[in-house]
Design a protein around this nucleic acid. Structure first.
Lengths: 250, 250
DNA sequence: CGTAATTTGTCCGTATGTATT
DNA sequence: AAATACATACGGACAAATTAC
């Protein structure tokens, strides 16, 4: 019956079967295991494979259609419309769109929220500022081809970059906003990488499913005089990206 | 107070309420918003805050207990037990115990399994060997202070390092085993980083609870003549480590 | 010290949603 | 389409352990 699926699907896990199957199909699409030539097996075959009823598979497919990963056509079949995992380089010269060049058609970073406030110690320590310094925060969501890839909160010293939110709103790029503010170039000083369960905010902004994972990086960028100018927390949808580093100094 | 929760919690969304609340509490623990002095508010207060029944909160807490984030004691309360993360540097000169120096008392890498076989294409490509080349694999588990931190599978060209398993068994260190085999020094060429749900093997070997996360790195080490000598997959317990990189080349 | 208040653990029952047959 | 089984969520009651007074 459902002996095989019994190993993969859990029945009282708090997640409905159709949603688990949706998650499964999504991840199988990513590894290329589910779909030959971009076409999914028939619903009956899938129901058999997962050891569930056809109606349950249909609910899963409906959800994936809703979120844009699949498109099914009566009489023809169900087809994949979903990108593969992107490889995001974290190096000395980390830039969002430049790093993903060639892996997607369009790039966009959208401003979600901005504010100015006394920064918490974590931020001021990273930026080497006195505790309690006023900082500007920029909350953004980055997308490639309409799919959210990551969201970030960045902090800047309000005394030097008080207007960065407005400049960003115009230029749509932090690199360009910094250039306008007298920072022609900058490099990544360090990056820490953690993995966490997605928070409710992650789930909403990155369009994740509950139980999804995010790769969380904290990083500091510095100008060419080695002065810290930007501290960021970036949260990547872990099933859409891998991070990548090449030959690095100790 | 339950107006707020009403905006965050969705009923009939395919995800059980108790699971959504578990996600919420987990993220609040991480930001430190949920627990004062490491103690969670009483179940009744939480139920009130989220606008649900106490039993639903209990289900959420039980899930977080299962995954190792909370511990509740009858009559006393529910307490946070998220361990502090070790910071594991991935740099040009990545070494296990040297990297964690000062963060723990004892370090140990234990050999779990070893074998020789035709390597799969992923391995041979990384090592720049002809497809189907015989490779030695070493499966290890690394611990600090008795707590498993990571496990790794490393592959070496069998023609050059056919005896590395025996040498490792004696030396208890890959660096020393390579030195014995004529590799006085080596550097990290590249690293990719992904995050996944823990596999059954991860759960067993790293003593994780079900539902835990692993940080998965793939990496290649090369000798001083830039010849690839070692390809590794390392799986870190994500709630015990963060990865760290400093100033790195493009 | 004992007693009451707090807080978690367990049991019952009922209504509704989900999945299969 | 209907019957069945199970999971989810709620409500209440009381027991057991700990803490406060």
């Amino acid at each position: 019956m459902r002996i095989l699926a019994g190993a993969l699907l859990e029945r009282k896990s708090g997640v409905a079967l159709w949603r688990q199957i949706a998650d499964l199909i999504r991840s199988e699409i990513e590894t290329g295991a589910a779909a030959k030539n971009g076409k999914l097996p028939p619903e009956m075959k899938l129901a058999e494979r997962y050891g569930v009823n056809r109606h349950t598979v249909r609910a899963a497919i409906a959800a994936l259609e809703q979120e844009g990963a699949l498109r099914s056509e009566q009489g023809r079949g169900t087809f994949v419309c979903m990108p593969r995992r992107l490889s995001y380089p974290i190096g000395k010269r980390t830039r969002f769109s430049a790093g993903l060049e060639g892996q997607a058609e369009t790039f966009r970073t959208r401003l979600v929220k901005t504010g100015t406030a006394k920064a918490n110690p974590q931020v001021t320590r990273a930026l080497a500022l006195p505790e309690g310094t006023e900082c500007v925060s920029l909350e953004t969501v980055s997308e490639t081809d309409g799919m959210p890839i990551s969201r970030a909160i960045s902090w800047f010293d309000a005394a030097r970059f008080g207007n960065i939110a407005e400049v960003f709103a115009e230029k749509q790029s932090i690199t360009m906003a910094l250039a306008t503010d007298g920072i022609p170039d900058y490099v990544r000083r360090w990056t820490t990488i953690e993995a966490h369960h997605a928070s409710p905010d992650d789930i909403a902004l990155l369009k994740l499913s509950s139980g999804a994972i995010v790769l969380v990086t904290h990083s500091v960028n510095e100008d060419l005089d080695n002065r810290a100018i930007q501290y960021s927390e970036t949260r990547f949808a872990a099933d859409r990206v891998e991070l990548y580093t090449k030959l690095q100094d100790s």
